[in-house]
């Protein structure tokens, strides 16, 4: 069992969720309420990681993070090292790849709040911030939780993009998914099987918990 890889994978999942979910709440709510022209194109762009092969996404991120790009050079100047093949690079890639998994459920959740409720909150004299805290967030919470769980579970299993952007550096970028691949390449089916089983169990528990919480929330508001 590669415990380093497991620890790194869990860390990557938690950091990705911590960065992406607040952003998804802002972007998802804005998309739910806005009527700007080009909204469809914007939504399609955000959904791209769902349909693009991970190697394609990984390739573009590799190019964007590399020393040949403006972004890569700026990052290197600011932090003294390149973004590719580092944990930070993995986090940025993971956040980008998971955008649709986080934004879409959150957006749907905010869309499902009847506009009358926002109007009622305003006529009740509630401030914008109080309306968000007392009305919108409790009602959108099941969707936010779904986004959180999908992002976390997807991060655990991400393979192609991680391999392209992070390589397979033990303790730095080698996640469980890559460790399993390495074990299989080394004909260690038992080691691969153990890690695969653990990943399966963690994913199953995460998804099951989200279903239970969502059902419980659904009952509470019914």
């Amino acid at each position: 069992m590669d415990w380093d890889a497991l620890w790194l994978t869990l860390r990557l999942g938690v950091v990705t969720v911590a960065i992406l979910i607040p952003l998804a709440m802002i972007v998802g709510r804005w998309l739910a309420l806005t009527h700007i022209r080009g909204k469809g194109l914007l939504e399609a762009t955000l959904a791209l990681p769902l349909v693009l092969p991970p190697t394609v996404v990984g390739f573009y991120l590799l190019v964007a993070f590399g020393s040949g790009s403006w972004f890569g050079q700026t990052y290197q100047k600011l932090f003294g090292h390149a973004l590719v093949f580092t944990f930070e690079g993995l986090v940025v890639a993971s956040v980008i790849v998971n955008i649709p998994f986080a934004v879409q459920p959150v957006q749907r959740a905010f869309e499902s709040i009847p506009p009358d409720l926002r109007d009622a909150a305003a006529t009740c004299g509630m401030s914008w911030w109080r309306m968000i805290r007392k009305i919108e967030l409790p009602l959108a919470w099941p969707g936010i939780l779904t986004g959180l769980v999908l992002t976390f579970a997807h991060t655990l299993g991400e393979f192609g993009v991680v391999l392209m952007v992070g390589g397979s550096i033990p303790g730095e970028t080698k996640t469980v998914a890559i460790a399993i691949y390495d074990r299989v390449q080394a004909f260690d089916d038992v080691g691969a099987g153990r890690m695969a089983l653990l990943l399966l169990a963690i994913s199953l528990v995460t998804i099951a918990l989200s279903y239970i919480f969502t059902q419980r929330l659904g009952r509470r508001y019914a």
Binding site: D119, A120, L139
Partner: peptide, 20 residues
Amino acid sequence: VPARQRRIGLVFQSYALFPH
């Protein structure tokens, strides 16, 4: 003057009660 600062009592057709 925004809605939240007007002293308005509005009864909505849908009631618009906060369901939670």
